[in-house]
């Protein structure tokens, strides 16, 4: 079931949208803000709410890389793996994070705190290597700086 809060936020989007379909991406993001990810059940509820078929909705949901159709942790760490960050030390950043968290790319820590993923170029190439966590961007990463950032979120 969509919560009242979720419905209210989706209605707000619908109020200035020319079609119901046009709010799909925003609606998926709303669900994700409340529940971290979009489960099959959430998807079914949303399809009903937007009067769309489940498949049509899922085809959109699975296209966008920042809509999570599998469960993720409390903080999703997205490391930039594009060219400028790669030149400037992506490998070091990745290795350090893997060791520190004890997980591989695509995995979540046992306590459900962190999920580790990659993301294309974050547009902060002058501060490469970079990552983004909870929509905060961190550049000029070194192992020490990573420790600081992660320890604060723990």
């Amino acid at each position: 079931m969509l919560s009242e809060e979720e419905k209210k936020e989706i209605d707000q989007e619908l109020s200035h949208s020319p079609t119901r379909q046009a709010v799909v991406i925003e609606a998926l993001k709303i669900i994700q803000r409340h529940r971290r990810w979009v489960s099959d059940d959430s998807l079914k509820d949303l399809a009903e709410y937007l009067e769309m078929s489940l498949d049509a909705l899922d085809s959109v949901a699975t296209f966008y890389s920042l809509i999570f159709r599998r469960e993720v942790g409390e903080h999703v760490i997205l490391i930039c793996d594009s060219v400028s960050c790669w030149i400037m030390g992506y490998d070091t950043v990745l290795d350090h994070l893997k060791k520190k968290l004890g997980i591989d790319l695509g995995e979540t820590t046992a306590d459900g705190k962190f999920t580790l993923l990659t993301i294309p170029c974050l547009g902060v190439c002058e501060r490469a290597p970079a990552m983004i966590i909870d929509r905060e961007t961190y550049g000029d990463l070194t192992p020490e700086r990573i420790d600081e950032i992660i320890d604060k979120l723990k």
Binding site: G123, V124, E126
Partner: peptide
């Protein structure tokens, strides 16, 4: 602005 290496619009 997702072209790798690009950060001018930001």
């Amino acid at each position: 602005e997702m072209e790798p290496g690009t950060f001018k619009d930001r």
